[in-house]
Amino acid sequence: MMKVFEASYQRFRERLRWRLGSDALATEVLHETWLRIARIDDVGLVQQPEAYLFRMALNVAADQREKDNRKLTASEIEAIRHTMDGALDPERIAEARAELAMLRAALEELTPRRKAILLLARLDNVKHEEIAERFGISPRMVEKELLNALRHCSNRLERKLNRRFSSGPRKGS
């Protein structure tokens, strides 16, 4: 079975690339298929090994797609959000916490709708789709409002920081 697989590898790869629309994905699927074959102790009698293997590769692709399309849970999102925290200095985090008053002022400057959308998304974790429905706008618009709100807040905080550090010693990155 392994031999058949190896012999048909290039052909499989091309067919899969055509089916899946990506060479990287095709290679990944073939790799996983190869692992699955290696795990099977006894495949029994297979009439058409090549067709059998290709069917197997398609199943792997389908599983992969299903796995990839699964929605993240709230706890997963929270964990992902903090995966890169190590990239920041602890002082930076402390400093940002000290700027809450500034951030509060920046939030007050948002248009009422933008602020409301931000708070619904942030504090109440309402899905964009639901926010969109509530305001009678498209989810795309919700996203745009959120990005504008974030940009406004971060720009406001940055301006203040730049002033404060303009003459201080610099750290390399």
Binding site: R70, K127, L147
Partner: peptide, 11 residues
């Protein structure tokens, strides 16, 4: 970040 917290983010 906005995509991740949108309610439609996938694996």
């Amino acid at each position: 970040l906005v995509l991740l917290t949108s309610g439609r983010a996938t694996v």
